[in-house]
Computed example of a mutant assay.
Amino acid sequence: MKLGVINEKTEGERRVALVPDTVSRLVKAGHTVMVQSGAGERAFLSDQDYREAGAEIVHDGISMIREAHVLFGVRAPGLENSIELHALKPGTVLIAVFQPLVEKVDYFQALSERGVTVFSMDAIPRISRSQSMDVLSSMSTVSGYRAVAIAAERLGKFFPLLMTAAGTIPPAKVLVLGAGVAGLQAIATARRLGAVVEAFDTRPVVREQVESLGASFVTLDVEAQQTKDGYAQALSDDAHSRELDALRGPVAHSDVVITTALIPGKRAPLLITREMVESMRPGSVIVDLAAEAGGNCELSQPGQTIEAHHVTIAAPLNVPSQLPLHASQLFSRNVVTFFNHALSQGLSVTEVPRQTEMDFTDEIVRRTCLIHNGKLVNEGLQKRLDEERG
């Protein structure tokens, strides 16, 4: 197959979909890999690195789009570039993060009209045999680590306990709200830096994982069910009110609060109110990893770091892109593992007529595919489109 790696168009995106190591593996498997010139520069990967891995460097992105059977990207290209959109041939396979629950439905309608096949890597089901393809988990790992680094930089205190001739310095107190992949990585990183860590999650099933990392689990009289993919479900209004009341004490006593709570397709739940921020000690730090979904802190300003009531509130966007090399390496391994799995399930692109062939009996392929040869095959996306049409 002819595979193409596109230049990312999203502002601030520094990751690249394939790195030289995975390109080399694909070339050895018999594929032709074309990489748009400069695709890896923001991840510190040069065109020469890709050449040495066996890739063809293409300067004309439009010609690559027309020629490739499969196009890999980190974030899906937007509708603003109609030239690239109309360069897509029917049957072309697109593999990237498409965010079908939040992206504008017009975009998917336009892709459907081009007759392409779309796989969204953020729709990978969270089952045991797809763990090596789960980009959400990989990128959450990066975000959890990076959140602690941001907090440590902003906090005017040491993280670890220090015993010196001048006296003893107590360790920082870190509270992590949400014990998913990002939260667990934040816990592990803060513990490695020597902080005393507490964590809270509405799912009591994660308590054992929190405690295994050396953190204390904050027990509150609030519990929520989780989806079949392991995500927390939204609380009722009454339960949410009790959750906020119960979090006041732990938030007020913390030097650092890292929030990671997300509900797929919905606004992030509010966990830290203005009054809670006011109760924190001067110099404390909040890192809100849910900023892209509106934020867990009432005072967060997505994409900005502010100071309110003498508390620093960081609400970074696209956190994995801040560590582009390693984030790209993880993403690339996930995406190539998925691609090889799809091939094993019959994925192919025929030339006459130009269309995608594959077997939908496999759960991973079926749930990840949004559009097949121009037909919307994802129920959630189809529902959003029907609602949009009225």
Results as ranks from 00 to 15, higher is better:
Leu325Arg: 14
Thr356Met: 05
Phe331Arg: 08
Asn340Arg: 13
Thr361Phe: 06
Arg366Val: 00
Val365Leu: 13
Leu330Phe: 11
Leu299Gln: 09
Ser344Asn: 14
Ser344Asp: 12
Pro320Val: 04
Arg333Phe: 07
His341Met: 00
Asn340Tyr: 01
Leu317Glu: 09
Leu299Arg: 06
His309Lys: 08
Phe338Asp: 00
Arg367Leu: 11
Gln304Ser: 14
Thr368Ser: 15
Arg354Gln: 12
Ser321Pro: 05
Thr350Tyr: 00
Glu351Cys: 07
Gln345Arg: 15
Ser321Leu: 03
Glu363Tyr: 00
Glu357Gln: 13
Thr361Ser: 15
Pro324Cys: 06
Thr356Gln: 01
His326Asn: 14
Cys297Ala: 15
His310Ile: 01
Pro320Met: 02
Glu351Thr: 12
Glu357Arg: 14
Ile306Cys: 06
Phe338Leu: 05
Val352Pro: 02
Ile364Asn: 00
Ser328Ala: 10
Pro353Lys: 03
Ser348Arg: 11
Ala314Cys: 14
Ala315Gly: 13
Val335Glu: 01
Gln301Trp: 01
Ser332His: 01
Cys297Leu: 04
His309Pro: 01
Asp362Lys: 02
Leu299His: 11
Val336Asp: 00
Val311Leu: 02
Phe360Pro: 02
Arg333Tyr: 08
Glu298Cys: 06
Pro353Asp: 09
Ala314Ser: 15
Asp359Tyr: 04
Arg367Thr: 03
Leu347Val: 04
Ser300Ala: 15
Asn340Leu: 14
Thr368Asn: 06
His326Phe: 13
Glu363Pro: 15
Ser332Arg: 02
Glu357Asp: 08
Ser332Gly: 07
Thr312Cys: 09
Glu307Trp: 02
Ala308Ile: 07
Met358Gln: 10
Glu351Asp: 12
Glu298Lys: 02
Glu351Met: 11
Phe360Ala: 10
Leu325His: 11
Pro316Arg: 09
Ser300Arg: 05
Thr305Arg: 01
Ala327Arg: 05
Leu330Ala: 13
Val319Glu: 05
Ser328Arg: 02
Phe360Asn: 08
Glu351Phe: 03
Ser328Thr: 11
Ser332Cys: 01
Ile364Phe: 00
Arg367Pro: 03
Val311Asn: 01
Ser300His: 04
Arg333Thr: 10
Gly346Ile: 10
Gly295Ala: 09
His310Asn: 13
Leu325Gly: 04
Gln301His: 13
Pro316Thr: 12
Ile313Ser: 10
Thr305His: 05
Val311Met: 03
Cys369Asp: 01
Ser300Trp: 03
Leu347Met: 10
Arg333Leu: 10
Ala314Phe: 08
His326Asp: 12
Thr337Tyr: 03
Gln304Met: 14
Asn318Arg: 15
Ala308Met: 09
Thr368Met: 06
Ile306Lys: 05
Leu330Pro: 10
Val352Asp: 15
Cys297Gly: 13
Glu307Cys: 07
Arg354Leu: 11
Asp359His: 10
Glu351Tyr: 04
